[in-house]
Design a protein around this nucleic acid. Sequence first.
DNA 1: CATGAATGAGTTTTCATTCAT
DNA 2: AATGAATGAAAACTCATTCAT
Lengths: 192, 192, 192, 192
Amino acid sequence: MDETKRNRPLRADARRNRARVLDAAESVFAADGLSAAMEDIARTAGVGVGTIYRHFPTKDALFEAIIVNRYERLADDADALSAAKDPGEAFFELFTRMVDQAAAQKAFADPLAQAGVDIKASTSAIGQRLLAALERLLIQAQQARAVRDDVGLPEVIAVLSGSCHAAEYAGRDHSVRARALAIVFDGLAPPR
Amino acid sequence: MDETKRNRPLRADARRNRARVLDAAESVFAADGLSAAMEDIARTAGVGVGTIYRHFPTKDALFEAIIVNRYERLADDADALSAAKDPGEAFFELFTRMVDQAAAQKAFADPLAQAGVDIKASTSAIGQRLLAALERLLIQAQQARAVRDDVGLPEVIAVLSGSCHAAEYAGRDHSVRARALAIVFDGLAPPR
Amino acid sequence: MDETKRNRPLRADARRNRARVLDAAESVFAADGLSAAMEDIARTAGVGVGTIYRHFPTKDALFEAIIVNRYERLADDADALSAAKDPGEAFFELFTRMVDQAAAQKAFADPLAQAGVDIKASTSAIGQRLLAALERLLIQAQQARAVRDDVGLPEVIAVLSGSCHAAEYAGRDHSVRARALAIVFDGLAPPR
Amino acid sequence: MDETKRNRPLRADARRNRARVLDAAESVFAADGLSAAMEDIARTAGVGVGTIYRHFPTKDALFEAIIVNRYERLADDADALSAAKDPGEAFFELFTRMVDQAAAQKAFADPLAQAGVDIKASTSAIGQRLLAALERLLIQAQQARAVRDDVGLPEVIAVLSGSCHAAEYAGRDHSVRARALAIVFDGLAPPR
DNA sequence: CATGAATGAGTTTTCATTCAT
DNA sequence: AATGAATGAAAACTCATTCAT
């Protein structure tokens, strides 16, 4: 009815609500897994369920948005690391960060794994950016002889995904996580 | 009043149905994840829901029975391997089998991870047997210099759990799975 | 197939089972109410559910059989009392016995009330005998000036049914039950 | 963030639905007993089952709400009668009203009986109020020589509960109900 | 725009009754 | 005849999503 404000970016309070929902959803999903109820998320965010649905048409869409969010940050990280550090360090640092996130956030590892598979609209669009960054880091690290030559992106993702789960399993026990990661890193290092 | 047959193992048809339910549940859970509906399982098994509940008082109990089943077989495998092969081979062969199972069966990896944590009655009783067998294999493999000395059971479980997820991610792509596993195995090998 | 034994009364063990089921049902219904499960009754009786269904085609039929059983005994009581005691005593004694039964057995009062209403086959057949006996006692008591003249059988049944519930409510508290019953008896006594 | 309306009583439509549910539940319970299905209640109320559960978390809670409702009205009645009529009349009038309700509503008598026993939260809170009012009426009636001296509240409740059941039994037959009640009232009157 | 009440399909579980052993 | 396994129609309850306020 009111064609004055069609594609304006989003009213200030609306943007604030969107962010609050996203934060709440992230922590509720992390705590309860994917089966968390929308009402719980709404309550945590301090809004009504309707507000969630205004911003995200579907529970899946909300979840996807979280993933996209993470991927954006990780892709940013990847770019920054690529610029700031030497190739091997950059690669393993990103790997470590992702694993650390998984340790902190239940339900991080699974969607990560899916990112390489899914063709779901936005997820993969942004996922591609992350994957591309990861691949760049991998190739640079291989050229710098920090990572063995005979692995490609798919294997790295598989191992990364696995490591995230391993970290999730290790939970609060830092030393187990560290040693498990050490095994994987040794396995990724060039032979000899 | 008929004390001849008190603790009879289970009538023939009942045993057959129990097995059918277990099979059906395994494949339906594998396909749909833990949120699969009991009715689907019943339909797949070709029985009524009531039959499932006669054998397993609860959805959780059914799931647990599947896990226990798997663990039993794996523990048996572990014992057999330990007797038949040289230590290093035995260890890596068991590791590989578990990962292969995970690749085939969604929802195998997660409960595996929990086995090291949970204290839930029967699950852990049998889980302990598997873990004990795994530890035995690990120690023997270490003594045979097939596995590096500085890892303990917790790390191995973490890495194993992670590898299962990696395999789940890799899905049907055998070569990715093989290469990912190779990375982990290299990481587990003794240095040099 | 075997027409040798068509209408023979019932094999000895069958008769014994029937009685056991009836006993078990009586106590389980008393404890859990009408919603008690058939399996519980079977277990209590030490038989399989199938055996219950051999003797009673339906849960309702089983319940009815219990009621019929009680009514038979009460009708017998009524006859005996009528012969042995003076009319007033006989009437109030029967009344008291019924109320005592109700106090002991949950779910006794309700079906009693229905006996006056229901036309359900056997129940009412035997119920009629009890009601007839009750009416005889009532009339005799009225003739002996032990009960007021202006009440008929329906009122007596209503009050009796109510008293059974009152007794059920009073539960273990004997003195409350006694005083409640005293009120009713006073009300039934002839005026003055 | 909008602190204007925190503990709002209930939106207009919500209140209307709550009342409809309560009404529907009352009549469905009255017709079918406590085992009535929630769906039936929902259909009768013209709402979805979910709506019932929004207002009452449990079938028991719904039932309790009905009882509480009745008790509130009866306690109000008791207070009004106590103020408006002479003690004896007030007592017997309340008694009669409760019995009339029971005649109309199956499943009214039983919970009444429990009110004297149960300690269940809200039920008994309001139940206490009713019982207190009843006791007040009783004592006043006794002081006015309208009720015999040797009965206490427990007996009165027992008899009242019993009378409710008697009325339930009598059903539509007004004259039976009236005469049955007359018996009880005579029993409650002071001797001679 | 935000809210939270309403919806109803779908889920787990129970239990009277049937039927193969 | 007895047994107890199987059946499947309910029943209570949940929760993603829609919509009136």
